[in-house]
Computed example of a mutant assay.
Amino acid sequence: MKWTPTAIALALSAPADALLRFPCAQLVIDRLDPLVTPGTAPSPHLHQILGGNSFNVTMNIEKDMPKESTCTSCQFSEDFSNYWTATLYFKAKNGTYKRVGQKPNVGFDGVNGGMTVYYMQDGLYNFAQTSKVTAFKPGFRMFVGDVNARTPEQIERFRQLTFTCLQDMNTRDPQTLDFPTKPCPAGIMTAVRFPTCWDGVNLDSPDHMAHMAYPEYGTFESGGPCPASHPVRMPQLFYEVIWDTKPFNDKSLWPDDGSQPFVWSFGDGTGYANHGDYLFGWQGDALQRAMDSPCYQNCPTLKTQNAAAMNKCTVPRVVREDIDGWVRELPGGHQANYRK
């Protein structure tokens, strides 16, 4: 799981000016996590998973995922990566829980739930995208967040994981680190921004985070430099997930004490434990080719597929349990918990 300095130098010499923004439909909702708990079925909590249909309980790093997959639930048909997050639940006054569905972002009508994925050279609102970045390599994987965080202090190092209370589908600010405290007219959007600086050697690390870092100061968007320990600038991988909380916006359904009723599938009721997982699986040099080409959303160097094809790519659930009805406990036996 090493990458040579010569290969790094060659990759960094390429020009770049692309911003990829695309939808991925739901591949499966299941209690599997081949990154954090490989080989374990069921995993401790429920996830919503997108991407290539080679997704399985182990995801052996030695295998070539693009060759294992026969379809992808993402718009770019050369992208067999897997992207996943925890799922969101509503807790009713009687203590039962109901899973919150997802809906597509603006411009992606017809896509079955899922989320929006970005790969960027520069900040989201910089359409020039002129910085040079090195695409992720086969076998690369990473995680961001802290599933045990329940206080502002514990989430301080993960300030790139946010919530937006959508007034309409175009709302993007303000962003908070905890769950919104009032009903959101168009739903709740979670944002997961992964670190962008690589150590240049390891495709993974024991905690799936140490091989990556955020800029030494500033942010990716402000052009902050990578630290000397992690000198290779990679694309900003960024998820936007829109949770359809509108069916639960009747304030009479909310707790009498005025607290907010949403919890992550592992029980976190603060929102501070927001997190995301990524397994790279682009075919050949497709991602680097896109990063080196001028394109936004629709990239001429990549093959695309329509919403029907994205929606058609699914895999059967491995763990059979009720994920659609009202339940007395969250999958895995979790109950809502709040600040420590």
Score class of each variant (00 low, 15 high):
1 M>I: 07
7 A>H: 03
7 A>N: 04
8 I>N: 08
22 F>Q: 08
24 C>V: 03
24 C>R: 00
28 V>Y: 00
32 L>N: 01
34 P>S: 00
38 P>E: 05
39 G>Y: 00
41 A>H: 07
48 Q>D: 14
49 I>K: 01
52 G>D: 08
56 N>R: 09
60 N>A: 12
62 E>K: 13
71 C>G: 02
73 S>V: 00
76 F>T: 07
81 S>L: 00
81 S>C: 03
84 W>L: 02
84 W>D: 02
87 T>D: 09
88 L>R: 07
89 Y>W: 10
92 A>I: 02
93 K>I: 08
93 K>M: 08
96 T>H: 10
97 Y>V: 07
100 V>Q: 09
104 P>C: 05
111 V>A: 03
113 G>A: 14
117 V>Y: 01
117 V>Q: 01
119 Y>H: 13
119 Y>G: 08
126 N>E: 11
129 Q>D: 11
129 Q>V: 09
131 S>D: 15
131 S>M: 10
131 S>W: 13
140 F>D: 15
150 R>I: 11
153 E>G: 14
155 I>M: 11
156 E>M: 12
162 T>D: 06
166 L>V: 12
167 Q>M: 13
169 M>C: 12
169 M>Q: 14
175 Q>K: 15
180 P>F: 07
180 P>R: 06
187 G>N: 11
188 I>Q: 02
190 T>V: 15
191 A>M: 13
196 T>Y: 01
204 D>F: 12
204 D>Y: 11
209 M>H: 09
210 A>T: 13
212 M>D: 14
214 Y>E: 09
218 G>R: 06
219 T>V: 04
221 E>T: 10
221 E>Q: 09
222 S>R: 09
222 S>I: 07
224 G>Q: 04
229 S>V: 10
230 H>N: 04
233 R>N: 11
235 P>N: 13
238 F>P: 05
240 E>P: 07
240 E>A: 06
241 V>Y: 09
244 D>T: 03
248 F>N: 12
249 N>T: 11
256 D>V: 11
258 G>N: 03
259 S>F: 01
260 Q>M: 06
265 S>C: 06
268 D>R: 13
272 Y>C: 01
274 N>D: 14
283 Q>N: 13
285 D>S: 15
291 M>W: 04
292 D>Q: 11
293 S>D: 09
295 C>L: 02
296 Y>C: 10
301 T>N: 07
306 N>Q: 15
309 A>V: 09
310 M>N: 03
314 T>N: 02
317 R>S: 15
323 I>N: 03
323 I>K: 02
325 G>K: 07
326 W>Y: 10
329 E>V: 06
331 P>E: 02
333 G>Q: 03
338 Y>Q: 00
338 Y>C: 00
340 K>V: 10
340 K>I: 13
